[in-house]
């Protein structure tokens, strides 16, 4: 088959039918994608969705420190001292719960408001350091004022998910008289 004929046929076949003629495809070493033979299914692992871990964290924060109750409550009508009294207690509980399950460290352990040197030869890892203000065009800076230390999780300590329904963040409670 001449190059001219192949090009001509391919052009019109793709233009009108959307596919490459089979003989031309095989001529040029293309093959049709074949369905991959199914590998044996892995043993049925506990089916935990990606979101289950997040729901579990909500569950724990609610159970041990009432975080969902607090966030879902409309507090606009309450006086500041009423809110203050509750928040002091809620804050202490949430903090204790969080630190029980997650170890949080600053990304940059330095005093906020002070100058921090950066490696001027390369742009910082954007997931760790966010440059703000007069960012140079090449994204590299010799340093700047630390505005926020950042947070990163050093370790997570969550109990294994059992058979409970994680979509129930808090069960309803019925007190039997």
């Amino acid at each position: 088959m001449s190059r001219f004929s192949a090009a001509f046929r391919s052009f019109f076949s793709i233009l009108f039918s959307g596919i490459l003629p089979e003989d031309i495809a095989s001529e040029f070493g293309f093959t049709k994608a074949q369905p991959v033979p199914a590998t044996p299914p892995p043993p049925p692992a506990p089916v935990h969705k990606v979101s289950d871990g997040a729901l579990q964290m909500l569950q724990i924060l609610q159970r041990d420190s009432r975080l969902i109750d607090f966030l879902m409550e409309d507090i606009t009508g309450y006086a500041d001292d009423q809110i203050g009294a509750a928040v002091r207690s809620l804050h202490a509980d949430c903090r204790a719960t969080l630190s029980r399950h997650v170890t949080l460290n600053p990304v940059m352990d330095a005093v906020e408001g002070t100058f921090q040197k950066l490696d001027a030869t390369k742009a910082p890892d954007p997931s760790r350091i966010k440059l703000i203000g007069n960012v140079p065009a090449n994204g590299k800076a010799p340093g700047g004022t630390l505005r926020h230390r950042g947070w990163m999780v050093a370790s997570v300590n969550l109990p294994p998910l059992g058979k409970q329904d994680v979509s129930v963040v808090a069960p309803a409670e019925i007190e039997v008289e």
Partner: peptide, 18 residues
């Protein structure tokens, strides 16, 4: 020392006893 008893039920702030 202040004592705070959080509200029972979902009204955690509104039900707080001080």
């Amino acid at each position: 020392q202040p004592l705070t008893i959080l509200g029972r039920g979902t009204g955690v702030v509104g039900g707080t006893l001080r």
